[in-house]
Each structure stands twice: as C-alpha cells, then as structure tokens.
Write a protein that binds this DNA or RNA. Structure first.
Length: 247
RNA sequence: AUGAGCUACGA
C-alpha cells in the first residue's frame, strides 16, 4: 500500500508503460518487493507491455521465491505477452507449469491465446485450444466466440463462423454483445453475404443492443462492396440521426 | 483492486 505502488497500479491500468517502468526501476533499486498478488501482477503487466518479457519472467520467479502464488491473472498476462511476442513455445510451457503452482487457466487465458494464434494463421492450433478449454470445463464467453469468428473469417471460413455464432446463442449463459455481432457482420460482409449481415443488424436492434461506430463502418463497407450505394448512404444517415459516437 | 475480442483512421 505504498504510494509508488498505488501509482504503479494506476499506470498499469492506464497502460502507461513509460511511467510504469520508472516506478519499477525505482522499486527495484530500493530492493522493494510488491506485497500482494495484484501488485505483482501489475508489475509483470507493465513489463510485458514494455516488451521486457524476460524481466517479467524473472519477476514471476521472484514472486515464487518470496512465497507468493501466481494466480489466473499472472498466467493470462504472461501467456498473452509471450504469444504476442511470437514466443509461442514459452507460452505453452507457462500454460503447463503455472497451473501446478496454483494459477488455473481462465477463459481469458484461452481466449487471448486463441486470438493471437488465429491471427498468426495457426488456426488449427487455435481450434484445438477451443476444444481443450471446453473439455476441461472452462466455459467460453462472448469474447471467445468473437475471436473465433474473426479468425475463421480471416481464412474465409464464414459458414463455420456462423456456426460459432449459433453455438454461442445456444448457450443461455451468454448474452451476445455488440462486439460479437460486429465480428460476424464483418465476416459476412467481406464474404459478400450482405443479406445475412443485414439480418444480424436488425437482430441487434431488436435486442436493444446499441450499434456502435464499428457496426456502421462494417455495414457501410459491406453494402458498398456489393454496390448498394444508396442503402449504404441510408445506413450512414441513420447513424447520424442516432447520434452514434465512438466508444 | 490487476488480464482478452469488432470497423475505420492514424503511426
């Protein structure tokens, strides 16, 4: 609960790596360890965002040395950081090791991995992780389906993306949000399936989901792509009338 | 109190 640690937490939340690193350097030079798990995680998060992956790993080891257990956050932060840095092998090693130290994988851990692997073109690895998480009883959420729809769409697999959306709707624990609707609309629009995309748009409004700027950008693009210019203009006017602002 | 997903535009 020291003042520098409070500052570091707010820098971590604001993703202000430069200021965060200054504080970390200061704490390190005074041989001052974070106290609670949240503080350790914030330090590790700032180091990861600053691309100091191996410093982050050393901090994790130090955390263990002083008898502090890593948690799901620690695991997600490290796995996401190493995967995005292209260190996929290390990410999978952490995914094996940390659970033995008390850090269980969480839906966030899997979702970030699926996202990054899929965007790197490793779609079958991503789909396998999706099966893995379900088989250990880790329930996917709307974020998970959104990233799956995006990566399937990148491969042109829009029918499977639709299948994912349906699977999500069949889980009554999930409330499909604006993002996941946008993801599928974008995939359908790029595939030229404008009618299906438009149905989705109407579904959104029927569910009292508020279309955002991305929704309108996606729809205008999709309509333009199939030459429905006047429809595109209409949608654009609708957006202005609703006063949609960036969120 | 700390972690993940959509479009465009930037860099």
């Amino acid at each position: 609960h020291s003042t520098p640690m409070k500052l570091l937490k707010s820098y971590a939340r604001a993703k202000n790596n430069a200021e965060g690193l200054k504080i970390i350097n200061d704490l390190v030079s005074r041989r001052h360890n974070p106290e609670d798990a949240v503080s350790w995680n914030c330090v590790i998060d700032v180091l990861i965002r600053a691309k100091c992956h191996f410093s982050a790993l050393r901090l994790y080891q130090r955390m263990m040395q002083v008898g502090r257990q890593p948690d799901s956050y620690t695991l997600s932060i490290l796995v996401d950081g190493f995967t995005k840095a292209g260190e996929v092998d290390m990410a999978f090693r952490l995914l094996e090791i940390l659970p033995q130290k008390g850090a269980s994988p969480h839906v966030v851990t899997y979702t970030t991995l699926i996202d990054t692997l899929g965007k790197a073109g490793k779609i079958s690895a991503a789909l396998k992780l999706f099966q893995d998480m379900k088989s250990i009883g880790c329930d996917p959420n709307a974020h998970t389906y959104s990233v799956l729809i995006n990566v399937l769409g990148l491969e042109g697999r829009w029918e499977e993306a639709r299948g994912m959306f349906r699977e999500m709707k069949n889980r009554n624990s999930i409330n499909p949000d604006v993002h996941v609707h946008n993801s599928l609309m974008h995939v359908l629009g790029r595939a030229g399936e404008i009618d299906l995309a438009y149905v989705l748009f109407k579904e959104m409004k029927g569910k009292t989901l508020r279309p955002n700027v991305s929704t309108y950008n996606i729809l205008v693009y999709a309509l333009g792509k199939v030459g429905k210019v006047s429809d595109a203009c209409e949608v654009f006017e609708d957006m202005k009338k609703k006063g949609v602002v960036p969120d």
